[in-house]
């Protein structure tokens, strides 16, 4: 069967050109080409996947309402709308937040998600406290944790007042002393 004139692929002699050095050479080139292909395709795909999620300052200012609507010392739940016309994906078509008029032109605007695992907190006016429906987190009117597992006070929106209208901006975290402790998702 084995002929000296025709090459037989099953003939072990046919693989003799593959010396260890040559095997190493082919492996290195194969690896390099593979890595190059993975990088050329992979880097744009990774950026495509991750960068929109990590983009900063995506939030536009939200119109919360006229400051006259917020009685001093009271907490109100507000549905705020973005100022600029929204383009897809309409992430912030309508945002619920709690507004506390602290008096003297000062406000506290709270994110509605509990800082524990994100359940929506309810404002209970007679009790003067926010309650989470999941693991018993309780916050006072200043957003401080008074009971339960939340690790930090309620997150807040930066705000500005312009011509008597209250606007909400980016979300930030505060520490136990209610001082700025970093932007949320920044």
């Amino acid at each position: 069967m084995a002929s000296t004139t025709t090459a037989d692929p099953h003939d072990p002699a046919a693989t003799q050109s593959l010396t260890p050095a040559r095997r190493r050479f082919v492996s290195v080139v194969l690896g390099a080409i593979g890595a190059a292909i993975a990088a050329i395709v992979g880097v744009p795909l990774a950026a495509f996947f991750a960068l929109p999620a990590l983009r900063r300052a995506e939030r536009r200012w939200l119109e919360v309402g006229s400051i006259a609507e917020f009685a001093e010392g009271q907490i109100a739940k507000v549905l705020a709308k973005p100022l600029a016309a929204q383009v897809w994906p309409y992430e912030t078509r309508q945002v619920a937040l709690y507004v506390l008029n602290q008096g003297g032109g000062k406000f506290a605007l709270y994110h509605i998600h509990c800082t524990h695992v994100g359940c929506p907190v309810r404002w209970n006016a007679p009790a003067g406290r926010f309650f989470s429906p999941c693991h018993g987190g309780v916050f006072d009117r200043d957003g401080r944790v008074v009971a339960g597992p939340p690790p930090r006070p309620l997150d807040r929106y930066e705000y500005k007042v312009d011509k008597g209208v209250l606007y909400a901006g980016r979300v930030y975290r505060v520490n136990e002393k209610l001082e700025f402790a970093g932007w949320h998702h920044a």
Partner: peptide
């Protein structure tokens, strides 16, 4: 809430700052 990578993981999963279209 995962240490170190938590924040990135959170946003990568959400595709942004909130749970939404992305």
């Amino acid at each position: 809430t995962a240490p170190v990578i938590g924040e990135y993981l959170w946003r990568i999963l959400q595709g942004g700052v909130e749970v939404g279209a992305r």
